[in-house]
Computed example of a mutant assay.
Amino acid sequence: MSADERRRALRDTLVAEAERMIAAEGLPGLRARELAQAAGCAVGAIYTAFPDLDGVVLAVNLRTLNLFEAALGPPARRIADEAAASDELVRLGQAYLAFARAHPLRWDALFRHRAPSGQRAPDWYVAEQARLFARIEQPLAVLRPDLAEPECRLLARSLFSATHGIVALGLDPQRLALPPAVIHAQLEILVRAMAAGLRKS
């Protein structure tokens, strides 16, 4: 096995073990020493495969984004009208809620992780996020065909922020802690109200 193959194998092992640790204990449970022990390598070996521990977290979060994308199912081939666009936005919101409930610690790690001061997320990670936001932009473009692409992208992020707020507060046992059925219903009310408002804009 070549040095590059060994490095790739180590990367895969580290990401798999970090993924398991985050799913079990959340992001605070990921520590370099324990990760190295689980992967069967020295602590220093982590930094031959990744520039830092943040790189490991980003790789795990990418897997989480891919898992969420798979949970969404294939994109709608065609959204026929405004009613169908509204239905698709509700479906996406409910899928987001279901994913957060099914994978709470992995979902939390997506938002808990902070890049080191002065650094931004790598372009490849931003591109993966943008692909998911495009799922929201598609029905929004049906509701507001007059919007230019940059405005539609911004609107998608605003709608996501509102959806995330309901899900995050509703699932937080120390804050709102609502029953799943209540979060489900409130989420639909919010999304349909926003969709109706957009149609009238």
Rank of each mutant, 00 (worst) to 15 (best):
D4A: 15
E5D: 08
R6C: 04
R8W: 09
R11T: 02
D12M: 03
D12T: 03
L14F: 10
L14Y: 08
L14P: 05
A18K: 07
R20V: 01
E25F: 03
L27H: 15
P28K: 14
P28D: 14
G29C: 11
L30Q: 10
R31G: 11
L35A: 05
L35P: 01
L35D: 04
A39K: 02
C41D: 08
A45N: 10
F50H: 05
F50V: 03
D52V: 01
D52K: 00
D52Q: 02
L53S: 12
V60I: 11
N61A: 12
R63E: 06
L65A: 13
L65Y: 14
A70K: 13
A70T: 14
G73P: 15
R77L: 15
R77V: 12
I79Y: 02
D81I: 08
A84W: 05
G93C: 10
A95N: 09
L97A: 05
F99W: 10
F99T: 06
F99V: 10
A102F: 02
P104Y: 00
W107N: 10
L110T: 01
R114A: 09
A115I: 05
A115C: 04
Q119Y: 01
R120L: 10
A127D: 15
A127P: 03
A127S: 11
R131F: 09
R131Y: 05
F133N: 07
F133D: 08
F133C: 02
A134M: 06
R135G: 06
R135Y: 04
E137F: 03
Q138C: 05
P139A: 01
L140G: 00
V142T: 06
R144C: 01
P145I: 00
P145L: 00
D146Y: 02
L147P: 06
A148M: 02
E149V: 09
E149R: 01
E151H: 05
C152W: 05
R153C: 13
R153Y: 13
A156Y: 02
A156D: 07
G165N: 00
L169N: 12
G170C: 04
P173S: 06
A177N: 12
P179K: 03
A185S: 14
A185N: 10
V191N: 01
G197A: 09
L198P: 01
K200T: 15
S201I: 02
S201K: 00
